[in-house]
Design a protein around this nucleic acid. Structure first.
Length: 256
DNA sequence: AATCCCAGCAACCGCTGTCGT
DNA sequence: GACGACAGCGGTTGCTGGGAT
């Protein structure tokens, strides 16, 4: 079987998305044939995880996210999937790319200017193996300082589009019973069977789901009232959060 | 205007871990 | 315990767009 490689076309994305929406996730190796794709299962899985799955936040890393990546990279090494768990809506691939293309250089620069180390660069950022560490007791989460203020982003990214996006916000559940709700219902199910690591769910201190709206995968998708819904030409929804600020966010690993 | 260079990012590849038989 | 299938992870590659020359 000659599998197609390279970039995914909008039609391929649509096929894969439609298939998973309809059938949920089961065996990736069976997906391409069933969905009518000339890809291998591995490629489909990657495309879904890194681009098509609900709740992904595209674009800007906030200063808090940057801080989290830097701190966790120093602590965990290049365990990108574990680091990504602490960043709702971010994929390991995205975190890895962001580190390699931007944060690593920034940390190196900071170390050079401050050879004794600083709060955010406490270890050799060039280490490839994880720093010896005690396994986290299931991450009782990011520092309390995880204060999401979507107003401030890295200059580099702010210049691009200024706001974070949650792609494919079809996981949001606007009002029960409408089409979005139905779609949300469909979307939540696959997660119950596909997250051995537990996806991260933002949870406010009062116990309600919050933050990143569609990024919350516990089956109770709630649209942020402030969110602006954008429907793109390709059929994706973008949710924008102008000036969204949370007092405190506790993130927890969840088994689904 | 044309070319070159580089950063960013999507996707591939190979390895490892897990699970069922 | 051995084996195969599958999923997940991290490193790497290669394409693309934008800036510099």
């Amino acid at each position: 079987m000659n599998y197609k490689k390279g970039l995914w076309s909008p039609d391929e994305d649509r096929r894969l998305r439609d298939y998973i929406l309809e059938h949920g996730l089961s065996c990736w190796s069976a997906v391409p044939a069933s969905a009518g794709l000339q890809r291998n299962g591995k490629s489909c899985r990657l495309r879904w995880i890194n681009y098509l799955r609900p709740g992904l936040k595209r674009g800007n890393f906030s200063p808090e996210e940057e801080e989290t990546v830097i701190n966790l990279q120093a602590k965990l090494g290049n365990r990108w999937s574990q680091i990504a768990v602490h960043l709702p809506g971010r994929t390991d691939n995205e975190v890895k790319n962001y580190w390699n293309s931007y944060l690593k250089k920034r940390v190196i620069k900071a170390q050079n200017s401050d050879p004794h180390g600083s709060a955010t660069s406490s270890s050799d950022c060039t280490n490839q193996g994880p720093v010896k560490h005690e396994e986290e007791p299931n991450s009782q989460m990011i520092s309390p300082a995880t204060h999401v203020d979507t107003g401030g982003f890295s200059p580099r990214l702010t210049a691009l589009n200024g706001l974070p996006k949650v792609l494919f916000g079809d996981c949001l559940q606007a009002n029960g019973g409408d089409s979005l709700h139905d779609l949300g219902e469909v979307m939540t199910n696959p997660w119950h069977s596909t997250n051995p690591h537990g996806e991260v769910c933002g949870q406010a201190t009062d116990g309600t789901t919050n933050g990143y709206a569609g990024a919350c995968m516990n089956g109770e998708m709630q649209a942020q009232p402030e969110a602006l819904l954008q429907i793109q030409e390709n059929g994706f929804f973008d949710i924008l959060f102008p000036g969204l600020v949370y007092d405190r966010m506790d993130f927890c690993d969840r088994e689904f």
